[in-house]
Design a protein around this nucleic acid. Structure first.
Lengths: 140, 140
DNA sequence: GTAATTGCAAATAATTTGCTGGGTG
DNA sequence: CACCCAGCAAATTATTTGCAATTAC
């Protein structure tokens, strides 16, 4: 039984703020905007509702699931796959498609220096049920 | 004058740890590994050196520049451009290439649910010197 | 009525920084 | 021997959480 969600004034305003901007605001900016309509709304409420709305699929969180930075000893451009089950990150050997940068430059007018491509899903170890914490801890 | 960098025992070990793994460790994991060789190394030193090594281009930081999450009112899959100068995030209208997911599935054996593609560079406003803080604050 | 949700404040978690002594070039 | 960098601990920043009061359904 997933528990039922109530549409509160706070939730409505937060969603409205997000739906009415083409920018990609931070929680804090949403909070500032929401305060214009509900002066005593609290930042905690904004965070809670952003998470609820994300889980419902109403909005997207960029950088979702990456509270910690990860480092890569290989500084050459390459792509990654992140397992949403065990959080491990794998290298992907697709060739880097630099043509896409020029395409975006032409279409949107920004100067594009590089891009980042990340795949998400369930890794082969987790699919097989082979995953073990030991394996993770001993990766070298 | 960029100041000169000294090769310390700590820096050498941290770099060595990263170069000798194909995983994409967190700062904390690097710290744990480095401690095996330098028991009294401090976590602060690990963070400092990871940043120095990243700035030198010796290693890559994944999720670089995103200490805060950003939210998108449009939950449909689409790509983004992030300006490294003003930090604004723009939508990119390239069609989503789902074929790449299958390619990775076939080649690497992971189940791929979706991917994320982000471009980086300098946005057209910053290139023109048009950027203003007001503009950012008033984005709606 | 009752369970979900709020505001507030305190708690976490990741990362950065100030200081002072030590080690590299 | 100058000055970059280490260790330590305290500070910052983003986000989450416990609790008692409030509100949607």
């Amino acid at each position: 039984m997933t528990k039922k969600m109530r549409m509160t004034k706070q939730k409505r305003v937060i969603l409205e703020v997000l739906k009415n901007t083409t920018s990609h605001p931070t929680a804090d900016w949403v909070y500032e905007q929401a305060k214009k309509q509900i002066p005593d709304i609290s930042l905690g409420t904004v965070y809670r509702n952003l998470n609820v709305l994300r889980d419902m699929g109403e909005i997207m969180e960029l950088n979702y699931g990456s509270s910690q930075s990860r480092f890569d000893g290989n500084p050459k451009e390459h792509y990654h796959f992140t397992c949403e089950s065990c959080s491990r990150v794998y290298d992907i050997d697709l060739p880097v498609q630099r043509e896409m940068n020029e395409l975006v430059e032409k279409k949107n007018g920004h100067r594009v220096d590089y891009h980042r491509l990340e795949f998400y899903g369930e890794c082969k170890d987790c699919r097989k049920g082979t995953y073990s914490k030991d394996l993770e801890d001993n990766r070298v």
